[in-house]
């Protein structure tokens, strides 16, 4: 029974990470945009939804939040998705014209700026304190059913992953996706075909950010409480690793990459404390992530499920 619980919780985390990876894949895999602000989109989704669905109830010295609504969870999730997409749009408006690695620096800085604001504007977000008592959707209904809440949420998250996957696969192989791919290969070609390159980049950025926002809302409504430490840049880097591992440009790859990362992290939890270097284990684990990233990029730059052809045009210096 307990093992099933563990599998479900790991599955829920993997589902949330999969959504993040899907969002990243439309940016990098389809459009060739370097987005290093994913943690911020995740955070905006989580905080928007949490603020909209929790009344201001906290009392005491640390209760500085004065903004709060008691809206239904579904409204929170919708708003979280939309607002994250909006933030993606705003960041992209200022910077999509920049070259790839400059865009990376602007998005990384923007994400840190967002986190700084969340951390310090306690009237809105409770600041460094934990925003708690976030409701779980349909909790009272589910408890009357003969299924555990974790199972329900697992199905909900993976249902959304499936829907998102199908939508994005379709979009990627449709006319919109073809323009994105043309932009990825070469801006000028797309431009010559009479496409408004910036507008397509903006759309791609907003859509991917929206999915990350959805992931954030779903996560917030599962874990009861959120705080700024959940949204450090290391999360963005981890999702990058997932996308590259799975194969940039492939949505199935993005999901697989996310699942592999989450499962690997869980498996290392079973390593007994008596092995040599057990105290250094958390760090060795992260060193390993670094090695995986480099090794994959060297030996299998197309990733587990990626398309080698896409790669040739996208990442080698053949301009």
């Amino acid at each position: 029974m307990a093992l099933l619980d563990l599998l479900l919780v790991v599955g829920i985390i993997a589902g949330v990470y999969s959504l993040l990876a899907i969002g990243m894949n439309i940016h990098w895999g389809d459009t060739g945009l370097l987005n290093f602000a994913h943690a911020a989109f995740f955070a905006v989704g989580a905080y928007t939804s949490a603020i909209l669905t929790t009344p201001v109830l906290e009392t005491g010295l640390l209760a500085e939040r004065v903004v709060g609504f008691d809206l239904p969870v579904v409204a929170g999730i919708a708003a979280g998705t939309v607002l994250a997409a909006g933030l993606g749009f705003v960041i992209a408006t200022t910077s999509v014209r920049l070259e790839g690695d400059y865009l990376a620096m602007v998005t990384l800085s923007s994400a840190e700026l967002v986190r700084l604001v969340i951390h310090n504007e306690a009237w809105l977000t409770t600041g460094a304190q934990t925003l708690k008592n976030i409701p779980r959707p349909l909790e009272s209904t589910v408890t009357t059913l003969p299924v555990s809440y974790d199972l329900f949420y697992f199905l909900l998250v993976w249902g959304l992953v499936a829907v998102t996957y199908l939508l994005f696969e379709r979009m990627s192989s449709g006319p919109f996706g073809r323009v994105l791919h043309a932009i990825r290969e070469n801006d000028d070609v797309a431009l010559a075909l009479g496409k408004d390159v910036s507008r397509f980049k903006l759309k791609s950025f907003a859509i991917g950010a929206g999915v990350a926002g959805l992931a954030g809302s779903l996560w917030a409504h599962y874990v009861y409480a959120i705080s700024p430490v959940m949204f450090l840049p290391s999360l963005t880097f981890l999702i990058w690793t997932a996308v590259i591992l799975g194969g940039a440009g492939s949505y199935a790859g993005a999901i697989l990459g996310a699942v592999v990362i989450v499962v690997l992290r869980q498996v290392t939890r079973f390593i007994p404390g008596s092995v040599p270097f057990a105290d250094q284990l958390p760090y060795i684990r992260l060193m390993f992530v670094g090695v995986v990233l480099v090794v994959v990029l060297y030996y299998r730059p197309e990733g587990l499920l990626g398309n080698a052809q896409r790669l040739q045009a996208g990442t080698s210096e053949g301009e």
Partner: peptide, 14 residues
């Protein structure tokens, strides 16, 4: 980090 705490907790429960 709450993320890791949740899976750590579930691991202990299991």
């Amino acid at each position: 980090n709450p993320q890791a705490a949740v899976s750590g907790f579930t691991t202990l429960n299991e």
